[in-house]
Design a protein around this nucleic acid. Structure first.
Lengths: 332, 332
DNA sequence: ATGAAAGCGCTAACAG
DNA sequence: CTGTTAGCGCTTTCAT
């Protein structure tokens, strides 16, 4: 580190004040164009870049965003993570990645995030207690839930896909195709995604005056849980799984263990549109989450909050899109 | 932020000097046990934690490690990422996640990492130019390649699995099972993993005086590339794919497009042991990378380097383990 | 074992 | 537009 050139070094070398060097890097500062050019040129030559840590200390904003990831083992998240870090980078932030240690609440990450003076936190498939949220927001920091909705009176912004609407599409497509014995496979029960997808699915039955479909609790969002759940589906001719990874496990169980054909004997639908849903071996019909738009919205909200936007918390919903594939071809 | 309590606040409140508060948090500092207890207690009560940014500035060590991820879309990486961040956290580091923007070299991440005074960088499925590496190491920072080996004279430490050894196991198992027409499917040609796995696979043939097996260049590590490659395999009765994701694409092509049975007509092997390799629909025989041990080694090297370990660069190799599943059952 | 003092490298008023 | 001056909150000698 000893060799790192500082703003003072550069200033001395150029015969200007150290603040001018600092200002040259601030697009909003008024600096004579020639001066700025001279400084930036010298900086490039000397390989100088303002020390972000020192800047964070004085500015009292670190430009670091904490990324708390809940279920990284779900294939939906790698793409989210990749796009999210790229989008954060593009917006001028760095991403500090935190994994919630097994068996712990996301609240446990907060102290470490505070310690590093993180400006904001994005919680992906994780949530905060109301107390944790209140504390965090209380001192000028921002927080956005991604792919989760705040439960209860938590004043947290959230960006998610319209889970209920997507699930309703799934139900309607199955009913219109004349499938009779339908089943919903729930994922982790304490997640807003599973709850909302269930609610949306049921609402289509209610709207038509049909009795509610059978429900199987997989207990978790995993391939294995989906596999187990599908074995309890009996003679169902249509199953909507709360997400794709469950559906994939379910399809394998139906085909390999239960000896049933998909889609002839059972139609299968999932939610998310993970890469494997498109593989020919599965060809899973599913509801695609608009990931890019969700990420863009997340960052927009984040920036607005950091600039002091006083709006009440928003729960943004972006529509899901039905992607028909071989595991169920909607009528029409 | 305004409300954040500082070491001075706490010191004043306790009637001690601010340095004592600082020392109380440094296990190596000599502080009277009673004093330390009193300070830590008050700190806990006031919800005080030393400001990591300020500490980084004075200490000139940020305790942040940059994590540069190459191919996040490969299902091998989510688990790596999760375990790596947990291990870094446990070792007292935070992880700054950087994604290499599409089409760019990992070198492009270095300036941003320097700017945030990152102590070390772990490059997962990515590498640095010799110039980039020299620069980085030059100013007291550490760098470790994970799942890659430095090519050429780069003085970078690396931790990887024994790709050549694992591939040799694959070849020997296929040959001992009496498979005749073998094929190697290469992945991204400029990666050490693909190159070493190819070399190891070939070496088994050379050792037995057999002529080299056929080689198909998939061009990339992806499902689609594996799918395409398998369609060129003709009547091969054994295929070793450079990694699992290629192998899964290949299996689907063999079964669904080429109408061949696995393992009866063709044995299929992969490398990595990603979660999907264990799914019953694939049951892919593969070589498991010892991820946990690799991560532990990575962090150990990192810490040694940060403490000034002057050893020449090491290229650590951990053995791969053959995991027999339905896609090829080794003889015996 | 404790306190005082000097910065780390930068940003942000405040003058001119 | 540019220079001067204070710190940001902490760690680390250097005294005592």
């Amino acid at each position: 580190m000893g060799s790192a050139v500082t703003a003072r070094d550069l200033a001395r070398q150029l015969g200007v004040s150290q603040s001018m060097v600092s200002r040259a890097f601030d697009p909003a500062a008024s600096v004579a164009p020639a001066m700025r050019a001279r400084i930036l040129e010298a900086a490039a030559a000397a390989n100088y870049r303002p020390n972000g840590i020192a800047a964070a200390l004085t500015r009292r904003r670190s430009r670091i965003v904490g990324l708390v990831m809940g279920e990284l083992q779900n294939p939906f998240y790698p793409a989210v993570l990749e796009q999210m870090t790229l989008a954060l980078q593009a917006a001028g932030f760095e991403a500090l990645l935190l994994t919630v240690p097994p068996g712990q609440q996301a609240d446990a990450c907060l102290p470490r995030l505070r310690q590093y003076q993180v400006d904001a936190v994005v919680l992906t498939s994780a949530s905060l207690s109301s107390a944790g949220a209140a504390h965090w927001l209380g001192d000028g920091r921002a927080a956005v839930l991604f792919n989760r909705t705040a439960s209860g009176p938590t004043p947290l912004d959230s960006v998610a896909c319209d889970n209920a609407g997507g699930a309703r599409l799934a139900a309607e497509a199955l009913l219109e195709a004349g499938r009779q014995e339908l089943v919903f496979v729930a994922g982790r029960p304490d997640t807003s995604t599973s709850q909302e997808r269930e609610r949306g699915f049921l609402s289509a039955f209610a709207a038509r005056g049909l009795r509610a479909p059978r429900r199987i609790a997989a207990g978790d969002f995993s391939y294995e849980a989906g596999h187990r759940a599908a074995l309890q589906a009996g003679g169902a001719d249509g199953i909507f799984f709360a997400n794709d990874i469950l559906a994939l496990g379910g399809m394998d169980a139906l085909r390999h263990a239960a000896g049933r054909r998909v889609p002839q004997d059972v139609a299968v639908l999932g939610f998310d549109d993970i890469p494997m849903a498109g593989w020919p071996g599965y060809a899973l019909t599913t509801l695609r989450q608009p990931v890019a738009a969700m990420i863009a919205a997340t960052i927009e909200i984040l920036q607005a909050r950091l600039e002091g936007d006083p709006q009440p918390a928003r729960a943004l919903r972006l529509p899901a899109e039905l992607v028909p594939r071989g595991s169920f071809l909607p009528a029409g």
